[in-house]
Simulated assay, not measured.
Amino acid sequence: MPDLRIRPARDSDARAIQAIYDYHVAHGTASFDSTGPSAAEWLEKMAAIRSSGWPFLVAEKDSEMLAYAYAIVFRPRAAYARTCENSIYVADAARGMGVGSALLGSLIDAARASGFEQMIAVIGGGEPASVALHAKCEFFHAGRLRNVGFKFGRKLDTVYMQRDLTGEDPSA
C-alpha cells in the first residue's frame, strides 16, 4: 500500500487501537473477549510491552490508524524467554489491502531485534483471514485446539501457527 507508515505505537494511539480491537470483539472470533479494554487499559498494556523491550507497532496512512500489532513473551516462564506470541488487528476498512502483511513483516523484524527466536500466532476461531496472513508470512500450522471457545452461539477452535525468527533450517 503506497504511503503506508509503520512506526512504534505512541500513547496518543490508544483510542484508535481500542476502536480497532472493539470492532473485532463485536464482529469477529479472532478475540474471545466479549468486551474490549478501555483506552486507559490499552495505555497500561502498551507501557508494559514497551518497558519489557518488546515491539508494539501501528500502521497508518494519512494519519489514520489502519492496524496495530505487538509481540509479547509466549509464556511468563524463563524457558520461554526467546519465544513470543504475536497479536495483529487490522481496521475493517483496511482489510485486504496488504496492511496486515506489511505490519506483520515489520513485527517479525522487530521481534527478532528484541531477541525473540520463535513467534507463535494463537488464532481464535481459526479465523481464515488470519491463518492466510500468517501463512503468507511463512508461519506453519503447529496445532489446533478444538471447541475451546464459545462466541456468537457456536463452539470455536484455536489455531496455533509458528515461525522461526533465526533463519535456521528447522529440518536440521
Rank of each mutant, 00 (worst) to 15 (best):
P2M: 15
L4T: 04
L4R: 01
R5V: 02
I6Y: 04
S12C: 15
A16G: 15
Q18K: 07
A19Y: 14
A19V: 10
I20P: 10
Y21Q: 07
Y21S: 11
Y23T: 09
H24Y: 10
H24V: 08
A26F: 00
A26Q: 11
H27C: 00
T29F: 02
A30Y: 08
D33R: 13
G36C: 07
S38F: 07
S38N: 04
A39F: 04
E41P: 11
W42C: 13
K45P: 01
M46V: 00
A47T: 09
R50V: 04
R50A: 15
S52V: 01
L57R: 13
L57I: 03
A59C: 14
D62L: 00
D62I: 00
F74I: 02
R75A: 03
P76Y: 08
A78S: 10
A79C: 13
A79R: 01
Y80T: 04
Y80R: 09
A81H: 11
T83D: 03
C84D: 05
C84S: 10
N86A: 06
N86E: 14
N86M: 13
Y89H: 09
Y89D: 05
Y89I: 11
A91D: 13
A91H: 14
A93R: 10
V99H: 07
G100D: 11
L107F: 06
I108T: 03
A110K: 09
A111M: 03
R112N: 02
G115E: 04
E117P: 02
V122W: 05
G125Q: 10
E127Q: 12
P128A: 11
P128G: 13
S130M: 09
V131D: 06
A132F: 13
H134W: 03
K136G: 08
C137V: 05
E138R: 07
F139G: 14
H141M: 11
R144I: 07
G149V: 01
K151P: 02
G153F: 08
T158N: 04
T166K: 01
T166Y: 09
